[in-house]
């Protein structure tokens, strides 16, 4: 029981990290109609910048530098890239971000090599925060929860309580009115794209130290973030939040579950399929869930329109 409570907290911390990624993706999609395939690449860049900062300055500087740098890169990508390919239509925008993701992967290979780098958790944040019975909950996991929640509150306040947030929310529903009122819509687009990238960069700087910082990390996490967005209902922040926590917890629980498929479905006997343990099933579950949801509820958990 104590053990599953700690697992739940672990799942929530992973889920919140996923939400930091998927919120940026969702915001950019709702505003610009662009699905940013390079989003996981921004996450990876954030991790590497955090790593470099932790080597040269310290870990905390990385937490500031990573979102700022990646946010700047994101704004540049919007200004010099997306804006230009926009005239060729949505397919070209998708292709552009896909190519960009590929380019970020390759540049990472060339700059930092193909093996993982040692991006360490600072001493102040290592060790257990508390333990329930024999199960320990690491400080760093708590730190991830803290950072994510703080970030989300900040974003919520920016969107709900500031003037710029008002313009962004207006641009979501009534872009033409917003530009008629004299607001610079392209500038809003660039800003939001930058914010999304900065969130991914921060998630990278935080997550890179918790997990492993390697050139394959974008490829490993990217599809899961996309699944979160599809399950939540594309364009719905609330849906993305629920889906991120759901996937985070499912992944965390599945990894430690130690019973096999034959135990659940006794009639399964094919090519050794009955001996597959649920922990090995963990990578499949998000995609499986996505397929299931698309069959049952094509608009996603909280999506308003049919896809």
């Amino acid at each position: 029981m104590e053990y599953s409570l700690v697992l739940l907290l672990n799942g929530i911390s992973f889920g919140l990290l996923l939400f930091m990624l998927s919120s940026g993706l969702t915001l950019v999609f709702s505003l610009m109609g662009v699905l940013n395939f390079a989003h996981a690449g921004f996450y990876m860049l954030g991790a590497y910048i955090g790593y470099e900062a932790s080597l040269r300055i310290n870990f905390w500087a990385g937490l500031v530098l990573a979102p700022l740098t990646v946010g700047g890169i994101g704004m540049a990508v919007e200004y010099f890239g997306l804006r230009k390919v926009h005239r060729y239509g949505h397919a070209a925008e998708l292709l552009f971000t896909f190519g960009l993701a590929f380019l970020i992967d390759e540049a990472t290979h060339l700059i930092w090599g193909r093996s993982a780098v040692n991006y360490a958790i600072p001493a102040a944040l290592s060790g257990p925060l508390f333990s329930i019975g024999e199960a320990q909950f690491p400080i760093y996991r708590g730190f991830i929860i803290l950072i994510s929640v703080a970030m989300l509150v900040a974003i919520w306040m920016l969107l709900r309580m500031s003037r710029i947030g008002l313009i962004i929310r207006g641009a979501l529903t009534h872009p033409n009115t917003i530009s008629t009122l004299g607001h610079d819509l392209p500038w809003v687009h660039m800003l939001v794209f930058g914010i999304g990238a900065a969130l991914a960069g921060l998630a990278g700087a935080v997550g890179g130290a918790a997990f492993v910082t390697e050139p394959g990390m974008a490829h490993a996490l990217g599809p899961i973030v996309f699944v979160v967005v599809v399950i939540g209902g594309l364009g719905s922040l609330g849906g993305a939040f629920v889906a991120a926590l759901l996937i985070g917890c499912i992944q965390t629980f599945a990894v430690v579950a130690d019973f096999n498929l034959g135990g659940i479905l006794p009639f399964l006997h094919w090519n050794g399929i009955e001996s597959i343990t649920v922990s090995r099933l963990a990578p499949v579950l998000p995609y499986f869930l996505m397929i299931l949801l698309l069959v049952l509820r094509p608009q996603g958990l909280m999506g308003k329109r049919a896809l």
């Binding site: 998708l94 599809p223 996309f226 050794g272 597959i276 099933l281």
Partner: peptide
């Protein structure tokens, strides 16, 4: 765009499923 995401998910589903059945 959703079609793109779903096909990406299907591709990953097939890949992870194949990893499950090494035989």
């Amino acid at each position: 765009a959703i079609f793109g995401l779903v096909t990406l998910g299907i591709g990953e589903l097939v890949r992870t499923m194949l990893d499950l059945v090494p035989r």
